[in-house]
């Protein structure tokens, strides 16, 4: 199981849980698992999220490995100038 930390307003969509657990070994499994386990998160996931894994930010790469000990934090999908 991987512990995923949600930002505040996402937590409100899943009964105030700031952390949820998902079975996932990579980014694809994580994003799919989140949407299945918590349909309320689906609109935001389809709009786009960034995922910080051990302090580094990932957006797309399905195969990005996630360990059970990884720190996983969902972020709004970032844009830059």
């Amino acid at each position: 199981m991987v512990t995923v930390r949600l930002w505040g307003s996402l937590a409100e969509l899943v009964d105030g849980k700031r952390e949820i657990e998902i079975t996932a070994t990579n980014l694809r499994e994580l994003l799919e698992g989140l949407g299945e386990a918590y349909p309320a998160l689906k609109p935001q996931i389809s709009r786009g999220v960034s995922v910080a894994i051990d302090g580094r930010i990932y957006n797309d790469t399905w195969a990005t490995p996630i360990n059970e000990t990884s720190e996983v934090v969902l972020l709004n999908r970032l844009v830059g100038g």
């Binding site: 930390r5 930002w7 910080a52 051990d54 302090g55 580094r56 930010i57 720190e71 934090v73 969902l74 972020l75």
Partner: peptide
């Protein structure tokens, strides 16, 4: 390094 940032992740 190791600080939990205000937006969530821990800094490298």
């Amino acid at each position: 390094e190791g600080t939990k940032s205000a937006y969530g992740p821990t800094y490298p």
